[in-house]
Design a protein around this nucleic acid. Structure first.
Lengths: 109, 109
DNA sequence: AATCTATAACGCAATATTACGATAAAGATT
DNA sequence: AATCTTTATCGTAATATTGCGTTATAGATT
């Protein structure tokens, strides 16, 4: 088919997958890293920073926004993008809570 | 095009993106969660657990293995899959090290 | 008002993903 | 050796992603 059978999984699984998927492209990782370290978060600065066309960056920003990982705010002529901390923390926590103790009990691998 | 311009980004960015991408599907999230909590990690148990065809699960396992997030070991007739802790910890650390202090200084969003 | 600047949306081509039935391969069981 | 069990691979259809040129849109500047 090509469409993921999201209905078969829990809301949380779908939620985390959506955010992880958004982080699943080097350009979007680079955008997030830029937003984390930059003094400004004007869209145009991202376009200048990355080796991709403006249209492509805009698309990646849309994907990150759709996943809830960034927010955009109109700032006069341009748009200011920022990390959406609430959701980024959710993703962060998900990974932080992965516990390997159970795994270590097994001997198969 | 459809092919990501991975050459334009750092090795780490590509690496993290590859792993995040692997986590970017609810079925693969479910597989990882199953491996974390299950007593066994036999491939067939995953197939029984998830609402997807065996061929599809096999494909997802391949994606996770390719990203380095799981390992597979032949166990007689069947295959034992386990979390690849080394790389899972890498992904975990990446998110753990995200620091929002810089972000909070900004007022745009 | 005309023009500039910044960003999103449209349209398209190339490629990748998702899903699954069917088949292959390889070890286990009879 | 024939069969069963388990898993990977192949082929295929549907859909999604990636990238970009081009075009809209909307606020800023002249």
């Amino acid at each position: 088919m090509g469409a993921s059978k999201a209905g078969n999984f829990t809301e949380k699984q779908n939620d985390i997958a959506l955010m992880a998927k958004a982080m699943g492209h080097p350009a979007r990782i680079a955008i997030i890293e830029f937003l984390l370290k930059a003094d400004t978060c004007i869209c145009n600065d991202i376009v200048s920073e990355l080796p991709l066309a403006q249209a492509t960056i805009s698309q990646h920003l849309k994907a990150l926004k759709n996943a809830g990982l960034i927010k955009g705010n109109i700032e006069g002529n341009s748009i200011c993008y920022c990390i959406n901390e609430k959701n980024m923390i959710k993703l962060q926590s998900y990974f932080a809570n992965i516990n390997f103790k159970m795994t270590q009990k097994k001997e198969c691998c």
